[in-house]
C-alpha cells in the first residue's frame, strides 16, 4: 500500500513529461512512444467508462433498496441494462440501438434544451434582483441589444442596432472579452499541468 502513492505519482509525471516532450522535440521515436501511451489511455478510459456505468447502476439499485424515489431509479436501471445488452449483442450499427439513440435519447435531450431556454430567460430576468450591480446591468443591456440586433423585432430590423451596434458588441467587445478570458483559462490550464508535472498537485493520492 505504501508504494502505491509514489508509484502512481511517478507514472503520472513520467507519462506527462514524455507527452510534453513530443510538443517540444519532433523525433519519430518519441512520437511513437506518445502514440503507444495515448493508445493505453484510450483503453483505460473505455474501461473507466464501464466502471462508471456500473457505479451509476449500483447507486440506483441502492436507491431502490432504500425506497428513495424507487420508480425513477427502476426505470433508469432497466433502461441502462436493456440498452447496454442490446448494443452488446446486436452491435452499435444495428437499427435497434440506433433507434433507441435516435428516437429516445435525442428527443429527451432536445426537450431538456427547451427547458434550458426557459431557465436562462428566467435567470436573466432575476439577475438584477439577485445581484444588483453594474456588471449585471451591463450584462442585461448587452443581452437585450444583441437580441434586438440579431432577431428582427416584429419582423422589422432596427437600423442602427442591427447594422452597427450589434456587430460592434459581438465582434469587438465580446470577442475581445472572450479572448481575455481565454488567456486566463489558458494560463490556469498550463499552471495546473506544471503543478502536476513537478509533483506538487496530486489530489487523488495521499
Amino acid at each position: 500500500m505504501k508504494i502505491k502513492s509514489p508509484l502512481s505519482t511517478a507514472v503520472a509525471i513520467g507519462s506527462g513529461l514524455i507527452v510534453l516532450l513530443t510538443y517540444l522535440i519532433n523525433v519519430d521515436e518519441i512520437n511513437a512512444v506518445r502514440e503507444t501511451l495515448l493508445g493505453w489511455v484510450v483503453i483505460a478510459s473505455a474501461a473507466a467508462l464501464l466502471v462508471g456505468l456500473i457505479n451509476l447502476i449500483t447507486v440506483h439499485v441502492n436507491k431502490i433498496r432504500q425506497g428513495k424515489k424507487p420508480l425513477y431509479s427502476f426505470v433508469l436501471v432497466i433502461s441502462a441494462v436493456v440498452t447496454f445488452s442490446l448494443t452488446l449483442v446486436l452491435g452499435p450499427g444495428h437499427f435497434i440501438p440506433q433507434g433507441i439513440f435516435q428516437y429516445v435519447q435525442i428527443p429527451v435531450e432536445t426537450s431538456l434544451m427547451a427547458v434550458l431556454a426557459v431557465t436562462l430567460t428566467y435567470a436573466s430576468a432575476r439577475l438584477l434582483s439577485r445581484r444588483p450591480n453594474l456588471f449585471s446591468v451591463i450584462f442585461i443591456l448587452t443581452l437585450l441589444l444583441t437580441l434586438l440586433g440579431t432577431a428582427p423585432f416584429f419582423n422589422i430590423e432596427i437600423p442602427f442596432i442591427s447594422s452597427i451596434l450589434q456587430p460592434f458588441l459581438s465582434k469587438v467587445l465580446a470577442g475581445a472579452g472572450a479572448r481575455g478570458l481565454l488567456i486566463g483559462v489558458g494560463l490556469g490550464t498550463v499552471a495546473t499541468g506544471i503543478r502536476i508535472l513537478i509533483g506538487a498537485d496530486r489530489p487523488f493520492s495521499r
Binding site: 431557465t119 436562462l120 435567470a123 436573466s124 439577475l127 439577485r130 456588471f135 450584462f139 472572450a178 481575455g180 478570458l181 481565454l182 486566463g184 483559462v185 494560463l187 490556469g188 490550464t189 499552471a191 495546473t192
Partner: peptide, 24 residues
Amino acid sequence: DNIPGQAVLFATAHEPLIGEELYA
C-alpha cells in the same frame, strides 16, 4: 473553463467564478 458556460453561470449562479478564478 468554457466561455459560453461562464456567461450562463454569471447569470444563474449565486457566486460565479469568472475567467481564471476557477484555477485559483
